[in-house]
Amino acid sequence: MTVIRVQRDDFDIGKEIEALRKGSTGIGAIVTFTGTVRDAHGEVTAMTLEHYPGMTEKELARVEAEAHARWPLQASLIVHRVGRLEPGDNIVLAAAASAHREAAFEAARFLIDYLKTSAPFWKRESGPSGDKWVAAPP
């Protein structure tokens, strides 16, 4: 099972994980990562995330399929928000479920590393000094 959603609305982490594991008794490990908007130094009042509908989902499906090819996953999940978000808001949820924890950890790290560095999302931070585009980390 794979789930990919790009949406404006917030998500409920517990409900997402429950849906991911529903009906699957072969799952022994679920590793999740939740990313949130942070304002560590009073410099971010909002973050706006943009994407190209259709292209983004296709690319997320490609990377999720790659994770399933590399690790023995029973299920995976990517939920990524777009639009204007404020500090403390959820941005992304990535999860990998497998019979064993090692595969789940490795696949979850692969998914979130891709989302952080290469996924087709564009981020603009707003703060007291104005707006600025955020470059993806290397």
Rank of each mutant, 00 (worst) to 15 (best):
M1L: 12
M1H: 14
T2F: 00
T2M: 12
I4Q: 05
I4M: 07
R5K: 14
V6N: 07
Q7I: 08
D12I: 05
G14I: 11
E16D: 06
L20V: 04
R21K: 11
S24K: 10
T25Y: 08
G28H: 07
I30T: 15
I30R: 00
I30D: 01
I30Q: 01
V31M: 07
G35A: 08
T36W: 09
T36H: 14
T36R: 13
T36G: 08
R38A: 07
A40Q: 10
A40L: 10
G42I: 09
G42T: 09
E43K: 00
T45S: 13
T45W: 02
A46Q: 06
A46G: 03
A46P: 00
M47P: 06
L49G: 03
E50P: 01
H51W: 12
Y52E: 11
Y52N: 11
G54C: 07
K58P: 01
L60A: 06
R62M: 12
R62K: 14
V63T: 14
E64K: 03
E66R: 08
H68F: 14
W71M: 01
W71E: 00
W71C: 02
P72H: 00
L73V: 08
L73M: 08
L73S: 02
L73C: 03
A75K: 02
S76I: 13
I78D: 04
I78R: 06
I78N: 04
I78A: 10
V79P: 02
R81G: 05
G83K: 03
R84C: 13
R84A: 14
R84H: 11
L85D: 13
E86Q: 12
P87T: 13
G88C: 10
D89Y: 09
N90H: 15
I91N: 15
I91F: 10
V92A: 08
L93V: 04
A95E: 15
A95Q: 08
A96Q: 08
A97S: 03
A99R: 13
A99L: 09
R101N: 00
R101M: 03
F105D: 03
A107E: 09
A108I: 04
R109F: 06
R109P: 02
F110S: 07
L111W: 04
I112M: 12
I112E: 04
D113L: 07
Y114S: 06
Y114E: 07
L115I: 14
K116S: 08
T117E: 12
T117M: 07
S118T: 09
A119S: 14
A119P: 06
P120K: 05
F121S: 04
W122A: 13
K123Y: 08
R124C: 11
G127R: 00
G127I: 05
P128T: 11
D131S: 09
K132M: 02
K132G: 00
K132L: 04
W133M: 10
W133I: 11
W133D: 05
A135P: 00
A135T: 11
A136G: 03
A136F: 06
P137C: 05
P137E: 09
P138A: 13
